[in-house]
Amino acid sequence: MSFTEPAGRPGTTDYQSPQSGSEPWLNLAADIDSEVARYFLVSARCGCFMQAARSLNVRSTLLRKQLAQLEQQLQRSLFSFQGSHLSLTREGQQLQARLITLAHERKLPVIEQPLIRLAVAESILHDILGRDLIALLRRNASLRLEIIALDSEMSLRAVSADIVLWLAAGDTPNPGPTFATTEARCLARIEYLPHIAKRYSRVTTRPQTQDELADFMLVQWQHDRRVEGFRPWNALVEGRLAGVVQTHAYELMLEMIRCGGCIGLLPTYMARFDRGVVALPGLFAEPMQLHAWLAVNADSQNTPEIKALADLIQQTFNERHEWFQP
């Protein structure tokens, strides 16, 4: 898996037929290496070297080097810049038309990329991994990635994936995936506490006991009802006869804490992720925590793209190790 620079907005250039007939130098098109021809055609279509490099999954420096050598081989200038916009010269348009014709004649196959299936706990996907995955896709436009959000133990046991990232209580990865995997790696221990938005509470009026929570509405993500490690919080919510909201959407729960004046259970790293919320320690004597586990499908563990993605996930957690400190 290559890692290349993000690209600017792509542009396109329509081919305009030249006034004169076919020129002798165009006969050299048949001898152009198929990979170099693909580099040229994708660059012409994208109107941007960086975007073309992303689509081809190569470094932009390599792409531009190959195209410069092509111009030397043909003794023709193929590209020109009009401000920041990349366009084809007259000779470039002629070569594009000839290569497209040859490609149809040769019926060159599209290079299929392996499908990578990533199953990840929904809260981890939203809070920790989402931004790095987006950055990965920006750098690798040809990647084929299926992202499966895990929102329950049932979905974890039913999923089939190449890489699995899940949350489990205790010091073991169970319950975990039902298919054969590599040995599970513990990425982090995540502590959980009730949180409230700073805008809805002053320091002196924030609840310090469970009795004081009676003046606040509670919000619970439905997934958390089935988490054994959250027993103290779940018992409090289930005992409520009023002033409680339960939702199946993780993002909606976050919005109700941020903007609805609710108190909800969140990982303690949330204060680093969102400066607008603050934890409420001391409400429960029993700690609430989960461990994040990573495993790779035993049948996929030697695939380079899957190994690279697993390493990226490990690196993401390593870079945020301070988030998981007590």
Rank of each mutant, 00 (worst) to 15 (best):
V36T: 15
L136V: 03
A158M: 14
V245F: 05
T178S: 15
L125G: 01
P281H: 07
V58Q: 01
F317V: 03
L167N: 10
M217T: 06
G264C: 13
D274A: 04
A310I: 07
L95K: 14
L145P: 06
Q315R: 05
A279K: 09
Q66Y: 05
E112C: 06
I313C: 15
G243I: 02
E122C: 07
H126W: 01
M270S: 10
A271Y: 04
P194V: 12
L280C: 02
E322A: 11
A119R: 06
F179C: 05
T4H: 10
E183P: 09
Q93D: 04
V237Y: 00
T182E: 12
F324Q: 03
E238F: 12
R275I: 10
F3E: 13
E191D: 13
A310C: 08
F284Q: 05
A53S: 03
G83T: 05
S201P: 04
D299P: 02
L309G: 02
E91R: 11
R106M: 11
T101R: 12
T182L: 04
R320T: 13
E305M: 12
I306A: 08
A249P: 08
M154R: 13
R45S: 07
L290Y: 01
G261P: 09
Q246L: 12
S300P: 08
V227Q: 03
K107G: 06
V203E: 14
A158N: 12
E35Y: 07
S77K: 15
R202L: 11
S17E: 13
H195Y: 14
R206A: 10
S160W: 08
P232I: 01
V120L: 02
L74A: 14
A249S: 15
F79T: 03
T209G: 02
E71W: 04
L70H: 01
I196M: 09
A168Q: 06
Q220W: 01
I128P: 03
A242F: 11
G83Y: 09
S152E: 10
R64G: 04
R258D: 00
R76P: 03
I263W: 00
T209K: 09
Q208T: 11
E212D: 02
L99F: 04
E305V: 12
T303G: 07
D33I: 05
W25A: 10
M50W: 04
E191A: 15
L236T: 13
R38N: 09
